[in-house]
């Protein structure tokens, strides 16, 4: 029984560490571009999207901002995955001359020009809002129960949140749902992270 549950553990261990934490060696080695969770939902004519990164393994009390990282919130509106997203909102970080970090959001629905503002502050954009900053990791999962399951050979979840008190760096977008859907009534959303190639 323990042997079989160990196999299960190997299959699920990444999931235990968070919804997308430590899901691949390359991402795990680079916390600034290691996505932990992506959320997307609609409410009252708004479309909200959240992309979290730099999770439990890199928890800090300040956000993790990297000028060479690029984050994408991809929005498909035609249900055709083969042709990619109809709109991708790109997010980058940059510093000013005195070391303050800011965020730049391009292709924000309803905003012609890039949306720029400081991190750790709600930025009002044409047609919505942008927030970037360190947040309590909203992912919850009973990792301790999972470990107990492993050691006892029986399912032993208690529901306790292993991720209590752990932080992530969050990108949160508040968009006009109709504009984001190009006039339609649904969208398909996913998030990506990327790194600027080092030029020799």
């Amino acid at each position: 029984m323990e042997v079989r549950l160990t196999i299960l553990t190997l299959a699920l261990v990444g999931g235990a560490l968070a919804a997308d934490h430590i899901d691949g060696p390359n991402a795990a080695a680079d916390p600034a571009v290691d996505i932990t969770d992506v959320f997307a939902w609609h409410e009252g004519g708004r479309l909200y999207a959240v992309l979290n990164f730099a999770g439990a393994g890199a928890t800090t009390t300040t956000g993790m901002y990297d000028a060479d990282a690029l984050y994408g919130i991809h929005i498909d509106t035609d249900d055709d995955a083969s042709n990619g997203a109809e709109r991708t909102v790109w997010i980058r970080f940059g510093e000013d001359a005195v070391g303050n970090w800011g965020v730049q959001v391009t292709n924000f629905p309803g905003a012609g020009a890039p949306v720029v503002g400081p991190v750790e502050s709600v930025i009002t954009a044409p047609g919505g809002h942008v927030f970037v900053g360190v947040r309590n990791d909203p992912f919850y999962f009973d990792f301790a129960g999972f470990q107990s399951t492993i050691s006892t050979g029986n399912l032993a979840f208690t529901g306790a949140d292993f991720f209590a008190g752990l932080n992530v760096t969050s990108i949160v977008l508040d968009m006009d749902a109709n504009v984001a859907a190009a006039g339609g009534d649904h969208v398909n959303v996913w998030g990506t992270s990327a790194r600027r190639p080092i030029t020799p």
Binding site: I22, D68, L70
Partner: peptide, 30 residues
Amino acid sequence: PGAGNFVFMTDDPATYLQVDRSAMPAVNTA
């Protein structure tokens, strides 16, 4: 001087190397 004047990289997103992606939770991991 310079405060609030954030400077961002201008490289084409297409030239970046994708490291991670995510939507449905735990799919990759599980």
